[in-house]
């Protein structure tokens, strides 16, 4: 009798996996190829060209939006990483504390909460507080959303960590803060880096929450892309999308290298 017959991968397994990956990647590949199309007609291939890229770099409004998005993503990802890491530490090391259920509920709910609700409720808060809408309101909104993702990424790493390391440090005379900074923090650093990058890309991608919380004159790149896309396909948008995809790819590769450096295979890869 053959050993482990059910462990073996069948033709059906391979086919469904391959088809699934083709489905996920083909549209993106097509988009990237067409961004180098020389023809103004999106659907007619007119040879290779960088024409749409140079058009983007001469488009003042688009460049402003891209810069705005970049600033919002960098600042909100940093804030979100600080707050999210603190939250993860409290949840996984704080044992029981008052209001813990509410705390974790507030952190998990935004992960799935429809964006129209989050966006609308934050806008109503900003209006009630009489806050001027612009860079800071979008940044606060994105921090609120993305810190929850950071919390989950860091918390899942903390949960897998060997607690006896921290305990040994304290038995050897470290106070809790010192034990955390010199033992725990280096071990969870890859997940903190991954959390920052996830927060950055999520912020760079958001159109709904930004539309609610932004003010006149401070449109982000996704808001601009979105309003162009509603009017139809344009070759310049293909080029911008390819640039954004390139930036995100760099971020992902950096994140996965950072995570691979210390953590065991696969465990930190799940973003949720």
């Amino acid at each position: 009798m053959t050993a482990r017959p059910f462990r073996r991968i069948s033709r059906f397994n391979v086919t469904s996996l391959a088809l699934g990956l083709v489905f996920l990647y083909l549209p993106i590949v097509i988009l990237v190829i067409y961004s180098f199309n020389a023809s103004r007609l999106v659907t007619v291939w007119g040879g290779w060209s960088l024409r749409w890229y140079s058009e983007f770099f001469n488009d003042r409004a688009m460049l402003d939006a891209a810069w705005m998005s970049f600033k919002v993503a960098a600042v909100s990802a940093t804030l979100a990483t600080l707050l999210g890491t603190l939250a993860a530490v409290a949840l996984s090391r704080g044992e029981r504390f008052k209001g813990r259920t509410l705390f974790s509920g507030m952190l998990y709910a935004p992960l799935v909460m429809p964006e129209v609700i989050t966006g609308l409720s934050l806008l109503l808060l900003f209006v009630a507080l009489n806050a001027e809408r612009g860079f800071w309101t979008v940044t606060i909104a994105h921090t609120t959303l993305t810190m929850c993702f950071v919390t989950v990424v860091v918390q899942s790493r903390l949960g897998k960590l060997d607690r006896s390391l921290e305990e040994a440090a304290m038995d050897l005379g470290c106070d809790p803060l010192r034990a955390f900074v010199s033992v725990t923090l280096p071990l969870i650093l890859p997940s903190i880096v991954a959390g920052w990058m996830l927060a950055f890309t999520l912020s760079l991608d958001d159109v709904v929450i930004a539309s609610f919380t932004t003010g006149p004159g401070s449109a982000t790149l996704p808001i601009r892309i979105y309003s162009e896309v509603r009017l139809g396909v344009k070759p310049q948008i293909n080029a911008i999308c390819t640039l954004v995809l390139g930036l995100i790819t760099v971020v992902i590769v950096a994140a996965s290298v950072a995570t691979k450096l210390t953590s065991a295979r696969g465990e930190s890869a799940a973003p949720l």
Binding site: D205, V229, G266
Partner: peptide, 21 residues
């Protein structure tokens, strides 16, 4: 797993736009 996660990280608006193309 990495191959499945990457699209999750890449812009969702761009992926919808790719389908409009």
């Amino acid at each position: 797993m990495m191959l499945v996660i990457v699209p999750f990280w890449t812009s969702f608006l761009i992926r919808i736009y790719a389908w409009i193309n």
